[in-house]
């Protein structure tokens, strides 16, 4: 198998970027792949069930994923992870501004050519 087709297991951060926004006790996190070709692979791997589990320590409630094929991108809306919202939370990050980077640490498997730094594999 050619080097660039080799499947690597890397943090999502090597494959996509994203941003958190908050409203009330709800955050949204966008996921935008660096290579359009990665989008369908991320759709397969970033299921709402998996994302809910990834945010279990935060007490994630309902997770909804909106798919945007034109951009391409996806948008996760996660309930309850702010544990009361910006005004009620004891958390240092009451807005959840850091949470996109928590999602960007989830492992994904993609061909090496779709990862910016494919040597940064995760276990």
């Amino acid at each position: 198998m050619k080097g660039t087709d080799r499947i690597v297991r890397v943090p999502l951060h090597e494959v996509a970027h994203g941003r958190t926004g908050d409203k009330g006790n709800r955050v949204n996190i966008s996921v935008i792949p660096y290579h359009d070709e990665a989008w369908p692979l991320l759709l397969e791997q970033l299921t709402v069930e998996r994302v809910k589990t990834w945010f279990a320590a935060k007490g994630a409630g309902t997770v909804v994923r909106y798919d945007l094929p034109n951009l391409p991108a996806m948008n996760f809306v996660i309930d309850d992870v702010l544990q009361g919202g910006v005004n009620g939370a004891l958390n240092l990050d009451g807005h959840g501004k850091s949470l996109a980077f928590h999602l960007l640490s989830i492992p994904v498997e993609v061909p090496a050519r779709l990862a910016l730094h494919p040597e940064k594999t995760v276990g």
Binding site: R19, G21, R26, S30, I32, Y66, N70, L71, N75
Partner: peptide, 29 residues
């Protein structure tokens, strides 16, 4: 990329962003 990140910032359903003046649909932009 800067535009895409901000487009989806604080957006829930990208096809139904509620404002006082319109229900905005950016899903196909």
């Amino acid at each position: 990329r800067t535009v895409k990140e901000q487009l989806l910032y604080e957006m829930h359903d990208p096809s139904s962003y509620l404002t006082p003046d319109v229900t905005l649909d950016v899903a196909g932009v």
